[in-house]
Amino acid sequence: MIRRIIPLLMACVLLTGCAQTDTDSSASKTVFAMDTIMTLTVYDGARADALRAAETELTRLDALLDRAAAGSAVYSLNANGTVRSEELSALLSTAAEIARESDGAFDPTIAPVLALWGFGSGNVYRVPGQEELAAALDTVGMERVTISGAEITLPEHAQIDLGGIAKGYAGERVRAIFAAHGVTSATIDLGGDVCLLGNKPDGSPWRVAIRDPADRERYLGVLAARDCFIVTSGVYERFFMDNGVCYHHIIDPATGCPAASGLVSVSVVCADGAWADALSTAVSVLGIQDALALRERLRQSVPFEFIALTSDGRVCYTDGVAGTFTPDGESGYVYEPLC
């Protein structure tokens, strides 16, 4: 009988061994900030303190960068044409660098044009007329914003919107706070964009699914990644129909009209949060070929990869993720590695 009981006991041990999970060692927090719901999950370090500090920081950044909040640095800058803020100045310097590198495909001074289309806050969607569009476009140009130390000055009529970079920057700040609290394994979900800190608690990379914009229950594929940001921009996020034409919110600063790059959704993988965020917009505006050229230019300074869904049903991905991106065989798309 003993001989029969031992295998039974062994089987039980094996079963419980397999079922062991890390659920007890994680702590998470949901934070409302930057017009989205952020979910922070930490797996080690001073978890409770790290989460508390991160929430405080996100609330502070919201108050600094929200252009709609009276009293924020960005609000003051837009209202008065000038503001003193060391932090905003540093962030705008980064924004200016990305604008330069991307030939203006990413440009936070596009705000007045966005507002014309109704993509600002609280506006009504409409197709603007040629003249008003031209007038608004005249105010666009990050290179004309003067940044001198902590002092920022806008040219006349110019307006700034950091919607395309603030979330990534916030993720960057949260990541730094986590690291300072001894956290080596964490995820920061910024409302559809993620920052991955370290590996999963079991030492394997995080597995991040990229949603198919055409069907919320489907996925373009899964990316295995660690220590990076994955930020997605999509024309489907905000759009309106007018006379049967779809107008989306990713405005090409060169034309003032919705970008016609043929890209539906772009996920950028980059070690830096602010860059990842801004580059997802830039790639959406540029299209595959120009985005590849931009990637080549940044190869030494800010290497990044991207996975893009085109309007003709192809999922194109750069060679840096070729080994870590697993296409979803059931998606119905054609997968195309880019060289």
Binding site: T36, G191, G192, V194, L196, R207, R211, Y219, V231, T232
Partner: peptide, 15 residues
């Protein structure tokens, strides 16, 4: 949620 075996999902920022 993500399909089985995934940890996180990106691109859910649909309005």
């Amino acid at each position: 949620g993500a399909p089985d075996g995934y940890d996180l999902v990106v691109g859910q920022g649909v309005a």
